[in-house]
Design a protein around this nucleic acid. Structure first.
Lengths: 265, 265
DNA sequence: CGGTACAGTGAACGCCGTTCACAGTCAACC
DNA sequence: GGTTGACTGTGAACGGCGTTCACTGTACCG
């Protein structure tokens, strides 16, 4: 080992050792593990959206030929599933138990939305994929706990979870990058939109004309929060009504109901 | 070239006239109009889903080479937009005005959902596209009228519309064809799912284990109706508070509908 | 009758996901 | 210590996708 440098010089028939890179570096091959692939896929999606996630682009970024990815991932569908789970892992499910159940649900929904919108296009994947990954389960549990604590019957608890979950996903899905949102964001186009709405025939679209620009709002935060509040308000009346919740046929009973069980452990 | 088929150049009498199709029919070339293309696209989507809508397949079905489609449609994106509008045209927006506004909203939502689910994959397009086509406007008007009649303030009316619209779209989007739904539909897999849920560590997923199979329901109709009821119930409380608020015009901070919720991050 | 606008053709381009025979490398085992 | 075998990455290919473009035939119009 001490004869490294000079030995190579005098040993005529031997290999050109100086061609061999430093031992450490040679050993530290990039190694391309599955976690590597998934992580890089996440940054690709985060940077350029879910459509930019192509096996070829991903392979290039990893300094590898496309086919190599298939040693670590069965196919693109599985890759997306893995990415999905990675995203859901970013949600923090710990909520202060002393908060009212309504607040707990809202906080969770806001967090979920934030994470989803930080990864444009991810919500679209979630909608069509199976929500039974480990982190999906944690999410479900986090939502179900406060809903159950609210005193909703079992079946209604499940329904309420679906409702809040679907609402949040659906909202995050129409992400700010969509043509839709981008147009409303731009103030000039927005003014045009309002003018267009006002110019509509008032006999065919009376309400649309009357409300003018109040219909397409550009404040996503307000829209999400307002929808969530309305939704939770609906859940609250269901909770108050006790076990007589979901079959509720358009009954307009007054809510002179007993105070809710404010009992949170 | 002069001896093409029915050129009828010099030899008038000996032409094989029976080769010439009935004048009307010959003239009635399929003609491949834009409406034709869009209509065929709709049937393709209806039959095999939105992913099966490929320019090449569509062209083949129309007995035409792919490039020919581009004489009638700028690109695939525009084709999808046209298809979208065609689908929305199928919704019947006429609702009995004597019904309570809550019922009118529900009826509309149900109709919208039905049409959307009759064209698998369409909801996904709607989410990311602009809702300003002529039929979109009619839909918006139909929803806004009862909401406005409910006595909601202007801004809240717009928010309520977004809420109901997004909810319906989001629901229709996770269509019965998704892996997700199909799994829950199959009773055997469903039993496995329940067993799996019950087998989870009860310390980490207490509510999930306790609720068992009540979380993932296979009855889409019930889920949609229940969510819609809850949502409208929330709107009702907002309407009650809204009429009051509109009456005294005070700076109301304690109404139920949309308090500016703080984002806990 | 000649000109012209235009719908449809055929072929190509550059992407995509995926497969497969092959080569290089490392670790374990005789 | 050399052999073997498992495994990762390579290079090239396949078929399908959306889209473009020079072209051809035809129907209509002056």
């Amino acid at each position: 080992m001490a004869q490294r440098r000079p030995a190579a010089a005098e040993d005529a028939g031997s290999r050109p050792l100086w061609f061999i890179p430093p031992a450490g570096e040679r050993h530290r091959r990039p190694a391309l593990t599955r976690e590597h692939v998934v992580a890089e896929a996440l940054t690709v999606i985060g940077a350029d959206g879910v459509d930019a996630l192509t096996m070829r682009a991903l392979a290039t970024r990893l300094g590898v030929v496309p086919g190599a990815l298939y040693r670590h991932v069965r196919n693109k569908e599985q890759l997306r599933d893995l990415v999905l789970d990675g995203v859901l892992a970013e949600v923090d499910y710990e909520v202060d138990h002393r908060l009212a159940w309504t607040e707990r649900v809202k906080v969770l929904a806001h967090r979920l939305r934030t994470v989803l919108e930080n990864h444009p296009g991810i919500a679209g994947l979630l909608k069509t994929r199976d929500p039974l990954g480990p982190h999906s389960l944690a999410l479900a549990e986090a939502f179900l706990a406060p809903l159950h604590a609210a005193g909703l019957p079992e079946r209604e608890t499940g329904l309420a979870f679906s409702l809040v979950y679907d609402y949040t996903l659906g909202f995050a899905l129409s992400s700010p990058n969509s043509v839709n949102e981008q147009r409303v964001q731009d103030t000039e186009t927005r003014n045009k939109l309002h003018a267009f709405l006002r110019s509509l025939p008032a006999d065919r679209f009376p309400t649309l004309v009357a409300l003018g620009g109040h219909v397409w709002l550009n404040n996503r935060d307000e829209r999400f929060a307002a929808g969530l509040d309305t939704l939770v308000a609906g859940l609250e009346t269901a909770a108050r009504a006790g076990t007589v919740a979901a079959g509720n046929r358009s009954a307009d009973q007054n809510r002179a109901a007993p105070p809710p069980t404010h009992h949170t452990r």
